[in-house]
């Protein structure tokens, strides 16, 4: 599983990464977590307000920091 965090380095993007890592830790799942910082890729997902969260190429969220439970829910769908 590949999790991409879209964001150019603002506080909320760092926070999102922490949330994702916490969710992974709590569920014991393995995933490759990547931070995407270039605008072209971020926009190619259609996300205009960062942070955004992409799991296996599917945009899950844009514009706010998810909760740990949100992320766990998306992980469970996989």
């Amino acid at each position: 599983m590949k999790i991409e965090i879209l964001g150019t380095g603002c506080k909320k993007c760092i926070k999102t990464k922490e949330v994702v890592e916490k969710a992974l830790e709590e569920t014991g799942l393995e995933a490759e977590v990547v931070k995407v910082e270039d605008y072209e890729t971020i926009l190619s997902y259609g996300v205009m307000i960062t942070p955004g969260l992409v799991i296996d190429g599917e945009v899950k969220l844009g514009g706010k920091v998810p909760s740990v439970n949100d992320v766990k829910g998306w992980l469970a769908e996989k």
């Binding site: 150019t8 909320k12 605008y39 971020i42 926009l43 996300v47 307000i49 960062t50």
Partner: peptide, 12 residues
Amino acid sequence: FCSCSSVPIFIG
């Protein structure tokens, strides 16, 4: 108003 969003919105 976070300026980190201005570029993505501009491109979008």
